[in-house]
Amino acid sequence: MTDPVCPAALAIVKEAEGLYLTAYRCPAGVPSVGWGHTAGVKMGQTISRAQAEAYLAADMAEAAAAVDRLVKVPITDNQRGALSSFVMNLGAGNLQESTLLRLLNQRDYAGAADQFGRWVYATVNGVKTELPGLVKRRAAERALFLTP
């Protein structure tokens, strides 16, 4: 079991995702419930707030484990939290293939921080679209990443 993710990262996820107790489709069309939980979600599904909390804890623990596996340099709890929010939203594969991770693992922490703003697009109705919610989320993640 990995250490829990910092509370500031959980706050970013909760603010960015919003709480939905009935399944919905996110802007990219993926069935989601709770605070952005997607695994096994079926449209029409309903959950309790307690289940949403459990999903969030599990999703963030999984994201943090991916961060712990991929990052090869020392990072702070805030950096781990920012990256965990990023992974929960975009998946470990996107972090693994990113310039953000490459720069971070080269100890270019400032350069890595500057990469968050590149991840603000989703495919909506077949079109690559900048989403204001992602702009706000990436800015919050970058700010947390840069907080000692």
Rank of each mutant, 00 (worst) to 15 (best):
G117D: 08
E141D: 00
V30C: 14
D114Q: 05
D68V: 05
G29N: 15
V5Y: 01
Q79F: 07
L134F: 12
R25A: 10
W119R: 03
A113P: 00
R107I: 14
P74K: 13
S85A: 09
T38D: 14
P27V: 03
V127A: 15
A23M: 07
A65Y: 05
F86L: 07
V67N: 02
T147R: 04
V33N: 03
A64E: 10
P74N: 07
I75R: 00
Y20H: 13
A11L: 03
P132F: 09
F116G: 00
I47W: 01
T147A: 13
A92R: 07
T99N: 13
N125W: 13
A16L: 05
S48V: 13
D3N: 15
L144G: 03
Y121K: 14
A63N: 04
K128E: 08
T2L: 05
P7Q: 12
W35I: 04
A57T: 15
L19I: 10
R80E: 06
L146A: 10
S48Q: 04
Q45W: 06
I75D: 15
A23N: 05
G133T: 10
V120C: 02
D108K: 06
G81E: 03
R69E: 10
E141Y: 06
N78A: 15
T22K: 09
Q45R: 12
K72C: 07
Q115P: 08
E17Y: 07
R137L: 09
A65F: 05
Y55M: 05
T38G: 08
G111T: 06
D114R: 04
A139V: 06
L95K: 00
N125L: 08
D114V: 02
R25K: 11
V87S: 00
A54L: 15
K128T: 12
F86R: 00
E62Y: 12
C6Y: 05
V5F: 01
F86E: 01
D114A: 02
A110H: 11
G93F: 07
W119C: 09
P148M: 11
T38S: 09
D68Y: 03
M60V: 10
D114G: 04
E130T: 15
A58E: 13
Y24W: 15
L10Q: 09
V124L: 06
G18H: 06
S32T: 01
V41Y: 08
Y20E: 02
L83V: 08
V33H: 10
K136Q: 08
Q51S: 11
P7L: 08
P132I: 13
D68N: 10
R25P: 01
R138Q: 07
A61V: 14
V71M: 07
A65C: 13
A140C: 04
S85N: 08
E130S: 13
G91D: 13
K128C: 12
S48C: 10
T46A: 10
N125V: 11
G126D: 05
L70I: 02
L10S: 09
T129A: 11
G44C: 13
C26K: 12
I47R: 00
Q51D: 15
F116T: 01
V5R: 00
M88K: 01
W35L: 05
